[in-house]
Lab assay of single mutants.
Amino acid sequence: EHQTACDSYWTSVHPEYWTKRHVWEWLQFCCDQYKLDTNCISFCNFNISGLQLCSMTQEEFVEAAGLCGEYLYFILQNIRTQG
């Protein structure tokens, strides 16, 4: 039997508790949902936990993801305040 992915999907966990996999799933979702250019995102810069992600500043997001960084930063802040 296969496990259902939704059990541990990033949407069901507060961002501060995300694993590295959750972070990448979220990035992929943002790219799909908001039509962000994946080429401007250095995924290696996001090989981090949710706690590390949440402690990043807006400037660090821009450094890590170029033009997309600002969008990603605000998307994350939205999730954190709603969560």
Rank of each mutant, 00 (worst) to 15 (best):
E1Y: 11
E1C: 09
E1F: 06
E1R: 05
E1S: 10
H2E: 07
H2A: 12
H2D: 15
H2W: 08
H2L: 09
H2R: 13
Q3Y: 08
Q3K: 10
Q3I: 10
Q3M: 14
Q3R: 09
Q3D: 08
T4Y: 09
T4D: 12
T4L: 12
A5C: 12
A5K: 11
A5D: 14
A5P: 13
A5Y: 08
C6F: 15
S12F: 03
V13I: 14
V13G: 01
V13L: 11
P15Y: 02
P15W: 10
P15A: 03
P15I: 00
P15L: 02
E16N: 10
E16F: 06
E16K: 14
E16T: 12
E16P: 03
Y17W: 04
Y17F: 08
Y17Q: 13
Y17D: 13
Y17A: 14
W18S: 00
W18N: 02
T19R: 01
T19V: 00
K20G: 03
K20L: 02
K20N: 02
K20S: 10
K20C: 06
K20H: 09
R21T: 13
R21F: 05
R21C: 08
R21W: 08
R21S: 07
R21K: 11
H22R: 03
H22L: 04
H22V: 04
H22G: 05
H22T: 05
V23L: 00
V23K: 06
V23A: 00
V23D: 01
V23I: 13
V23T: 02
W24V: 14
W24I: 03
W24D: 03
E25H: 06
E25R: 08
E25L: 08
E25Y: 10
E25T: 06
E25S: 09
W26K: 04
W26C: 01
W26D: 00
W26I: 13
W26T: 03
W26M: 01
W26Q: 04
L27C: 00
L27I: 08
L27K: 02
L27M: 02
L27W: 00
L27Y: 11
L27V: 13
Q28H: 15
F29E: 07
F29T: 14
F29C: 06
F29V: 05
F29G: 02
F29A: 09
F29D: 14
C30M: 07
C30I: 04
C31F: 06
C31K: 06
C31D: 02
C31S: 04
D32R: 13
D32E: 14
D32L: 06
D32C: 08
D32F: 04
D32T: 10
Q33R: 14
Q33I: 06
Q33S: 12
Q33H: 13
Q33Y: 09
Q33P: 05
Q33E: 14
Y34D: 01
Y34F: 10
K35L: 07
K35S: 09
K35V: 07
K35P: 05
K35Q: 13
K35G: 13
K35M: 11
L36W: 12
L36H: 07
L36G: 07
L36E: 01
L36M: 13
L36P: 01
D37G: 03
D37A: 06
T38D: 06
T38Y: 12
T38M: 12
T38S: 13
T38E: 13
T38V: 12
N39C: 06
N39M: 05
N39H: 15
N39W: 00
N39E: 09
C40P: 06
C40V: 09
C40L: 12
I41L: 09
I41C: 03
I41W: 04
S42P: 09
S42M: 09
S42E: 11
S42K: 14
S42L: 08
F43I: 11
F43N: 13
F43P: 10
F43C: 07
C44Q: 15
C44D: 15
N45K: 14
N45T: 11
N45E: 11
N45C: 06
N45W: 05
F46W: 08
F46A: 03
F46E: 05
F46Q: 04
F46L: 07
N47M: 08
N47H: 09
I48A: 03
I48C: 09
I48S: 02
I48R: 05
I48N: 00
I48E: 02
I48T: 03
I48Q: 01
I48W: 02
S49I: 02
S49H: 04
S49Y: 01
S49D: 14
S49K: 04
S49P: 06
S49E: 07
G50P: 15
L51R: 14
L51W: 08
L51T: 13
L51H: 14
L51E: 14
L51V: 12
L51Y: 13
L51S: 15
L51N: 13
L51Q: 14
L51M: 13
Q52P: 02
Q52T: 12
Q52E: 13
L53E: 02
L53P: 03
L53T: 03
L53H: 02
L53W: 00
L53C: 01
C54Q: 02
C54D: 04
C54V: 07
S55H: 10
S55A: 14
S55R: 12
S55M: 10
S55I: 05
S55T: 09
S55V: 05
S55E: 12
M56I: 00
M56L: 09
M56C: 01
M56Q: 00
M56W: 14
M56H: 03
M56N: 00
T57K: 09
T57A: 07
T57N: 11
Q58L: 12
Q58F: 04
E59S: 10
E59L: 07
E59C: 06
E59K: 10
E59H: 12
E60R: 04
E60P: 03
E60L: 02
E60W: 13
E60A: 08
V62D: 03
V62F: 06
V62R: 10
V62H: 04
V62L: 05
V62Q: 10
V62C: 11
V62S: 09
E63Y: 01
E63D: 13
E63N: 12
E63P: 03
E63K: 13
E63S: 10
E63R: 09
A64R: 13
A64P: 00
A64N: 13
A64T: 08
A64C: 11
A65L: 07
A65D: 03
A65P: 04
A65Y: 10
A65T: 11
A65M: 07
G66N: 06
G66L: 01
G66K: 03
G66C: 00
G66I: 00
G66A: 02
G66Y: 00
L67T: 14
L67E: 15
L67A: 15
L67Q: 14
C68M: 12
C68L: 05
C68I: 07
C68D: 12
G69M: 00
G69D: 01
G69R: 01
G69S: 00
E70C: 05
E70F: 06
E70I: 05
E70V: 04
E70Q: 09
Y71F: 10
Y71H: 15
Y71R: 15
Y71G: 11
Y71D: 15
L72A: 02
L72Q: 02
L72R: 02
Y73C: 01
Y73M: 04
Y73Q: 02
Y73F: 09
Y73D: 03
Y73K: 00
F74Y: 12
F74W: 10
F74E: 15
F74G: 15
I75F: 09
I75K: 15
I75C: 14
L76G: 03
L76C: 05
L76V: 00
L76D: 01
Q77W: 06
Q77P: 01
Q77S: 07
Q77M: 08
Q77C: 08
N78P: 02
N78I: 05
N78S: 11
I79P: 04
I79G: 01
I79M: 12
I79C: 09
I79L: 13
R80C: 07
R80L: 12
R80M: 12
R80S: 03
R80N: 05
T81S: 12
T81M: 11
T81N: 14
T81R: 13
T81K: 14
T81Q: 13
Q82V: 07
Q82W: 06
Q82M: 08
Q82T: 13
Q82A: 11
Q82S: 11
G83V: 10
G83W: 12
G83L: 08
